[in-house]
């Protein structure tokens, strides 16, 4: 059956057991990449001709903003899969993605403000890029709040998925705002179709940080999802068994 693998993917138990093996590798990859990228970007990459050292905030700002946008699609697509296939795991991933996305969006806004003061001369302006990014933060917070507003999990899941899906329209707006309208924020530096307007000596540490953030995102999303799986499935025999097994090894170790 063509759809069999897809439905197996929807089993929380299968997901929990599979990801147990991936978690330490993802953690290791994120620590190595973000560690190396930070030292490289902050210590060894040359300073910018115009901004001096303050440009180095891009090593946090750009990866956080990337993942804030990509993470929204992960949340919305998980919600859509949950709505269409009634897949429990998918809703769990959606709910887990919301707080991570909110934190990343906040980091992007905060580092942008810190950089804006010495570069532009102001912490904040209401231009299209920054305002649409603030709306993204509110969308994430909206999903978190909506999830807690219902006592029945299934109703909350559906409501969150609908809000997440309606909010997807904001993502291309954020991405293209700097091209469609006059904004104070500069257009994209990393381009997919033409040459990026950043020197390679500054770009490679940035790329390292971006990949590192992707690994960290995957790790955080999995950790949150696994925790929520245990909370939702605590009545099932496999979770009970798992918990008994854990407490036994803990008592042995203690």
């Amino acid at each position: 059956m063509a759809w069999q693998w897809f439905h197996r993917l929807g089993s929380p138990r299968w997901f929990y057991q599979k990801t147990s093996a991936w978690m330490p590798w993802l953690a290791l990859a994120s620590v190595l990449l973000i560690g190396a990228g930070s030292v490289w970007g902050l210590g060894f990459a040359p300073e910018d001709a115009k901004q001096g050292n303050s440009y180095r905030i891009i090593y946090i700002h750009v990866p956080a903003a990337f993942l804030a946008l990509a993470g929204y699609y992960i949340m919305a697509i998980s919600g859509a899969i949950g709505l269409i296939w009634k897949m429990k795991l998918s809703f769990v991933v959606m709910r887990a993605a919301a707080p991570i996305g909110a934190v990343l969006t906040f980091i992007a806004l905060f580092t942008g403000a810190v950089w804006g003061k010495p570069t532009w001369g102001t912490y904040w302006v209401w231009d299209a890029r920054i305002t649409s990014m603030l709306i993204l933060l509110f969308l994430y917070i909206g999903v978190i709040a909506l999830a807690r507003a219902f006592s029945r999990e299934q109703v909350a899941d559906k409501a969150c998925a609908l809000l997440a899906l309606v909010g997807t329209v904001n993502i291309p707006i954020i991405y293209k705002s700097v091209d469609w309208w006059f904004t104070l924020h500069q257009p994209a530096t990393i381009k997919f179709t033409e040459k990026s307007s950043i020197d390679p000596s500054m770009f490679y540490p940035l790329l390292t940080m971006i990949i590192g953030f992707y690994c960290l995102y995957a790790w955080t999303l999995m950790a949150h999802t696994r925790e929520k799986i245990l909370q939702r499935e605590w009545r099932t025999s496999w979770v009970q068994q798992l918990m008994r097994g854990k407490s036994m090894t803990e008592s042995k170790a203690g």
Binding site: P46, D48, A49, K50, W120, Q186, A188
Partner: peptide, 18 residues
């Protein structure tokens, strides 16, 4: 009453800029 510098999207080390 307010002037803001708008930074461009280019990042270059000083030697390359020169």
């Amino acid at each position: 009453d307010q002037v803001l510098a708008k930074h461009d999207e280019n990042y270059t080390p000083p030697e390359v800029a020169e």
